[in-house]
């Protein structure tokens, strides 16, 4: 994992840079507490997998990381921004540096693939020159291996293709952090494997730090540097995939052995 060197008098200490720091985050909906004092840290160019059963608050956690939901208490620091004390302009600045790949891909279905990818370029970077737009769109599509889908509409794409296009649409803005919400859900094992490879390839090429929300054990094994298991809304179980696999926690054991 690449590190940041910090010079201090005669000694050189190596500190990995913290990209995401979540401290004591709680979130409830009505009477139901979903997240209970979540604590986690993600370092530069690290792939962190948040693993857990359906309904344990994984998607709630990742939505809190981009300001789609507001935590009831605790703090979320992403890059140099404190998400719990941030104004709208700063939030927009932060969002330009964070890519979010949705569980259902969330492609704009009234637009073609080309228009989907051009949309953030036009609206965020004010790029309107046709040649430039075309080059950037083709480059992003080549990264996900789908340049032939340029003029297709989302309804004409398979589930795996939609996921890849969704990732390409976020990559086109060169984010520093990628958040993946269930990247392999609803896909066959072969396509899931391809998506896992793509997640690793994205880190190599774009130097991104990633948070991957999943309940897919093979996805967690293949892409993770570190795993956080959410059990009953708590994040007490953290470590590498192999460390967690040896955990004595009954729910986690059941999860790994299923």
């Amino acid at each position: 994992m690449p590190n940041t060197a910090v010079e201090n008098d005669n000694t050189i200490s190596i500190h990995p840079k913290k990209m995401i720091e979540i401290i004591d985050v709680c979130k409830s909906f009505d009477e139901r507490q979903i997240l209970k004092n979540i604590n986690l840290t993600v370092y530069d160019k690290e792939n962190l997998v948040v693993l857990g059963r359906s309904g344990t608050g994984k998607s709630v956690l990742i939505k809190c990381m981009v300001g789609l939901l507001t935590p009831d208490s605790g703090s979320i620091k992403i890059l140099d921004y404190n998400l719990t004390a941030i104004n709208k302009e700063e939030l927009n600045e932060l969002r330009l540096q964070v890519g979010f790949s949705f569980q259902g891909s969330a492609l704009y279905d009234s637009m073609s693939v080309k228009e989907n990818l051009e949309f953030p370029l036009k609206r965020n970077l004010a790029i309107y020159e046709r040649q430039k737009l075309h080059e950037l769109v083709i480059a992003a599509l080549q990264d996900v291996g789908l340049e032939h889908t340029l003029n297709l509409y989302p309804a004409e794409l398979s589930g795996g293709m939609k996921k890849r296009i969704g990732i390409a649409r976020t990559l086109i803005l060169n984010p520093k952090i990628m958040l993946y919400d269930e990247p392999t859900s609803g896909l066959d094992p072969i396509t899931s494997g391809e998506i896992n490879e793509l997640i690793l390839k994205v880190r190599e090429k774009y130097n991104t730090t990633s948070v991957i929300i999943t309940h897919d054990i093979s996805c967690a094994r293949e892409v993770s540097d570190k795993v956080v298991a959410l059990v009953n809304g708590e994040s007490t179980l953290q470590g590498t995939f192999d460390e967690l696999k040896k955990s004595e926690n009954s729910e986690l054991k059941q999860f790994f052995n299923y």
């Binding site: 890519g99 259902g104 969330a106 492609l107 704009y108 279905d109 949309f119 953030p120």
Partner: peptide
Amino acid sequence: SMRVTEQIDAMEVSGTRPFSY
């Protein structure tokens, strides 16, 4: 349907000002 399929959320998280658009 854009809200239900998270298309509006996708616009929001990419900073593309969905309300104006």
